[in-house]
Amino acid sequence: MKGIVSVIGKDRLGIIADVSTTLTEQSVNIVDLSQTILDDYFTMVMLVDLETMKCSFKELSDELEKCGQRLGLSVKIQHQSIFDAMHNLEYGGFNR
């Protein structure tokens, strides 16, 4: 199962490093990454593989939220299927 990590907030040093470390600590692999500056806001979206994740989804979500608090921006993880459902005509349901 795959998740989408979204990071939105004011740009600063070490955002990618800190988010990546939080993911690595739980053995979550980053599959793809896309990033831009939108209206002065740092905006990053990561596709992550949750197959090898060591903790529960909730624990990972809490860790990322804490990471966001440290960095002063919003860091969230959502299951990939909600984005597929909305934007991909051919989506195949909630993939595990």
Binding site: I4, S6, S34, T43, V45, F83, M86
Partner: peptide, 9 residues
């Protein structure tokens, strides 16, 4: 991967 704009939308 679902593109950035779609995720943000």
């Amino acid at each position: 991967m679902t593109n950035l704009q779609s995720v943000l939308e």
